[in-house]
Design a protein around this nucleic acid. Structure first.
Length: 569
RNA sequence: UACCCCGUGGUGUAAUUGGCAACACUACUGAUUUUGGUUCAGUCAUUCUAGGUUCAAGUCCUAGCGGGGUAGCCA
């Protein structure tokens, strides 16, 4: 096992150097014979799209199963028909698969509704559950507060016979929505509010995405989740911290029913800077059209990251990298961006694309001549080979790469200076052409024929290398430069009368036209490239006649940093 | 102010379970470079505080401080 994270490019679930607290707990249980193996599950509610936080949980659950040679199920926690939709069921499966995981079994909590009901009758008959007629408001009043104990429901002491009859009538649809509940009979004075006679079933005359109108009573999370785990033979039920207070109830149900008892272990959910992670807020962003759908490349959803150009491998690496603990931390989004940079640096072919172009004419180039020059596809990977790029006397370069007058530290092209054209020749700038208002419209250079890339024996050295395209052969493309969706580290912190929406970054998307080397015309949606000296880009599915590229993430830019700090001269 | 959980560099995670505080990322320096990318080297800590146990405490004990969670017929 390597202790070096940098050379670990894990397959799904590959082992890491040190064990996290969950693995240590598993080791202990396994050694003590408390668990027969590692059987986990990923249990999303199909009421929204999966996001990067879920990715952490997916990597954890599937990863644990893989490294311990166990199994991991995908189970939809579909116990609330009013929120759940088939659309979400499908997107979730797609996202899990795309991340590189395959579940051993696909289940739905709704598959267990009948079994759950049988167990409910058992609890009723054993005097562990009762039908309560209190409405929602009264139930809350009777529950007490954080500092005061609750009081017993007046319906708490109904006989098992009476309860059974009422429960059957509830199930048969004889009462309206919200009229009654089935509650576990535990302890209204418990300091843990989850144990103050929690509701097991509520009446909802609603259409369920899978069971249709078969049921009008639906189990609550606590009543469904642990039992579903139990039925599936789950041994370690991994969930997030907010369920910690639910564990005593989880245990109570399994113990009281006398069924297989998985161990629930909680870990801290992922928080990340410059984004929001709650399903409610993500839904709001979509519904109010602050973004263009769930898979908008600015969204932290798996589908958004996919469209943004993130690779599954980079997300898996990120998940392993941030680790698992119980401390409520916030991960710097830079780490996510780094993980995709690190991967794409190794695998993305390089291409030259010019933004905000300015014309550059080579005055000593033979009229009309086009020369094909050889360019390296990826200096990090020799097997990626080379490609041919057309070079001519009429070129386009980025206007950022030229200044008529420039400070000492400006290594790019300036009047009277020289620079290498990537994969081409060294050129010397001797003059510029300006329009009436004094703006440079054309740069005039000569090229040095002795300095052709790959066969340069001139010994000439220049400080800068810039990219370019041949004006005639360049392909016009659309570029969508995405940036962070929010302008502040923690959008949740909003001032008086503000919401997280007030922190949306107005510059999260900048669309521009750019000029690409012709090779790029062949690319298809999903293809990823490094635009040399600029960043990583992916072909968007919106591409048609004209290609559309999304910026995954820019390259590190130490020059830009110097400029920002005023250290550029 | 009830109960539960958590406090280790700027960030996140470790520390053979009582034995030299480590790894990664960021930031900053420098080197290399036909991408101001990549790569390489270096720099950055009173382990929340105060006591205690011990030859030895990030780790164990006590008290305090700080952060998070919990009062859905949501999950």
């Amino acid at each position: 096992m390597s202790d070096n994270h940098r050379d670990s490019h894990p397959e799904p679930g590959a082992p890491r150097a040190t064990k996290n607290f969950i693995e240590q707990a598993i080791d202990a249980d396994l050694a003590a014979g408390k668990a027969a193996g590692v059987f986990t599950r990923f249990p999303p509610e199909p009421n929204g799209y999966l996001h990067i936080g879920h990715a952490k949980s997916i990597c954890l659950n599937f990863g644990l199963a893989k490294s311990y040679d166990g199994t991991c199920n995908l189970r939809f926690d579909d116990t609330n028909p009013s929120k759940e939709e088939t659309e979400y069921v499908e997107s979730i499966q797609e996202d899990v698969r795309w991340l590189g995981f395959q579940w051993d079994n696909l289940h739905y909590a709704s598959d267990y509704f009948e079994q759950l009901y049988q167990w409910a009758e058992q609890l009723v008959q054993d005097g562990h559950a009762y039908v309560c007629d209190l409405d929602a408001e009264k139930t809350r009043e009777y529950r007490g507060t954080l500092t005061q104990p609750g009081t017993n429901s007046p319906y708490r002491d109904r006989t098992p016979e009476e309860n059974l009859e009422l429960l059957r009538k509830m199930k048969a649809g004889e009462f309206p929505t919200g009229a009654r509940t089935l509650r576990a009979k535990i302890d209204m004075a418990s300091p843990n509010l989850n144990l103050r006679d929690p509701v097991m079933y509520r009446i909802m005359h609603a259409h369920h995405h899978r069971t249709g109108d078969q049921w009008c009573i639906y189990p609550m999370y606590d009543w469904a989740h642990g039992q579903s785990d139990s039925i599936e033979g789950i041994t370690f039920s991994i969930c997030t911290l907010e369920f910690e207070n639910h564990r005593p109830l989880y245990d109570w149900y399994c113990r009281t029913l006398g069924i297989h008892h998985p161990r629930q272990i909680e870990f801290a959910r992922l928080n990340m800077t410059y984004t929001v992670m709650s399903k409610r807020k993500l839904l709001q962003l979509v519904k109010e059209k602050h973004v263009n759908g769930w898979d908008d490349p600015r969204m932290p959803t798996i589908s958004g990251l996919r469209r943004r150009g993130y690779t599954p491998e980079s997300i898996r690496n990120f998940a392993t990298d941030v680790g698992v603990a119980k401390f409520n931390s916030t991960i710097d989004v830079i780490r996510l961006e780094n993980s995709v940079r690190e991967h794409l640096n190794r695998v993305a072919p390089r291409r030259m694309v010019v933004f905000d172009p300015i014309k550059l004419t080579i005055t000593n180039w033979p009229e009309g001549k086009v020369e094909m020059v050889e360019a390296t596809n990826n200096p990090e990977d020799e097997s990626a080979g080379t490609r041919m790029v057309p070079f001519s006397g009429s070129l386009l370069i980025g206007s950022d790469d030229f200044r008529e007058e420039a400070p000492r530290k400006f290594f790019r092209l300036k009047k009277g200076g020289a620079v290498r054209l990537r994969s081409g020749y060294i050129i010397d700038c001797h003059d510029v052409v300006k329009d009436a208002s004094g703006n440079v419209t054309e740069i005039l250079c000569t090229y040095d024929p002795e300095t052709k890339s790959g066969q340069d024996e001139s010994g000439r050295k220049v400080k800068g290398t810039i990219h370019w395209v041949s004006a005639e052969q360049a392909v016009k493309v659309e570029v969508r430069n995405y940036d962070r969706l929010f302008a502040v580290e923690n959008p949740e912190v909003a001032g008086e009368g503000q919401t997280f929406l007030d922190h949306l970054n107005p510059d999260s998307l900048t669309v521009t036209e750019a000029f690409a080397e012709p090779e790029l015309a062949e690319s298809k949606p999903g293809d990823r490239f490094q635009f040399e000296r600029l960043g990583y880009y992916v072909v968007d599915r919106d591409s048609g006649e004209q290609l559309v590229f999304n910026r995954v993430v820019p390259l590190r830019d130490s020059w830009g940093k110097m400029v920002a700090k005023g250290k550029d001269n």
